[in-house]
């Protein structure tokens, strides 16, 4: 198995542990990731609030770089916002000829072109659909026995495009968690919003939304995430959210590939667990058993 790998900007900075743990786990599974040296930002949620054309051109530039390489591979994208933006290009290009021409007129500035056809896929989709539980079970040598993990999918990995799971009641992470030897913490918040970028611009709302999630996760040992934005909202503001809600809401929040890596016995250094903002002593103690 081989994929173009689009890490995106967050995974070079605040979510570096998501990047490195994803690569480590893929390597352990024998999956090749092809990185595009000259990739640029997908526009995140900023471009779409400023210019519609810019919001498709920025992700299209990356697809055009991949198209130039002439390889028949899907894109693997760990960040949900990047995934949404890259996927949006093909969704819109195929129903709007005029837009296709406009995108290419802009890309021509860098002697690039993109006519569609490369599939953009979320990391979770690739793990659940292409890799699957059998391949994962074969790699597990440190079962996460006794751990209760709350699967958190967030929004844009599932909506509006998705297609690999139920966009309102997703379940695809559950067999993966069980394949690692852990228990699925039952909750109904897996697809609810954490507030996303509102944490920067409208903090009180994001604190409220994140607070509801953390309250519902009480009783789990850990929340599993698949998005750098969800991760940051859930793990970096726990003190402020606890204060706002008047109760202790601290809990470990780890990326799904980090949990996979622990079960594969890859070690804390390879998975960069030291970089997580919320990796509690009680979870560390449980994992040492």
């Amino acid at each position: 198995m081989k994929y173009f790998y689009y890490s995106g900007c967050s995974l070079e900075g605040t979510a570096i542990e998501y990047n490195l743990s994803t690569k480590a786990v893929m390597q352990a599974l024998g999956i090749e990731l092809i990185e595009l040296e000259d990739w640029t930002c997908c526009g995140a949620s900023a471009a779409e609030t400023t210019s519609d054309l810019l919001s498709v051109v920025l992700p299209a530039r990356n697809l055009a770089l991949a198209a130039k390489m002439g390889m028949d591979c899907d894109f693997l994208i760990p960040c949900s916002a990047c995934y949404l933006n890259l996927r949006k290009v093909d969704e819109r290009l195929n129903r709007d000829e005029g837009l296709r021409d406009q995108i290419n007129e802009v890309l021509q500035e860098e002697e690039l072109s993109y006519q569609g056809g490369i599939r953009s896929r979320h990391l979770l989709d690739v793990i659940a659909t292409d890799i699957g539980t059998d391949m994962i079970k074969a790699k597990v040598n440190h079962k996460l026995s006794g751990l209760r993990i709350a699967p958190y999918y967030g929004c844009q990995a599932l909506r509006p495009y998705g297609g690999y799971d139920d966009p309102e009641e997703p379940h695809c992470m559950e067999p993966l968690i069980e394949a690692l030897g852990a228990e699925v913490y039952p909750w109904s918040m897996g697809a609810k919003c954490c507030g996303a970028g509102l944490m920067t611009t409208k903090k009180e709302i994001a604190v409220e939304l994140t607070g509801e999630l953390l309250k519902a996760a009480k009783g789990a040992d850990c929340i599993a995430t698949v998005c750098p934005m969800c991760q940051m909202n859930l793990d970096s503001y726990q003190k402020q959210v606890s204060r706002a809600k008047g109760e202790d809401l601290r809990i470990s929040v780890l990326y799904l590939p980090q949990l996979m890596g622990i079960a594969f016995g890859l070690g804390e250094e390879a998975l960069k667990l030291n970089l997580n903002m919320a990796y509690t002593g009680s979870l560390q103690a449980k994992l040492r058993h």
Partner: peptide, 28 residues
């Protein structure tokens, strides 16, 4: 300005209207 782009409204709209996209257009 309070939309976090969770796409729930777009997903559930019985008329299939592009509601989140429309909010982006309002921001523009």
């Amino acid at each position: 300005s309070l939309c976090s782009s969770c796409y729930y409204c777009t997903l559930r709209c019985p008329r299939g209207l592009p509601l989140t996209e429309t909010i982006h257009a309002l921001k523009q």
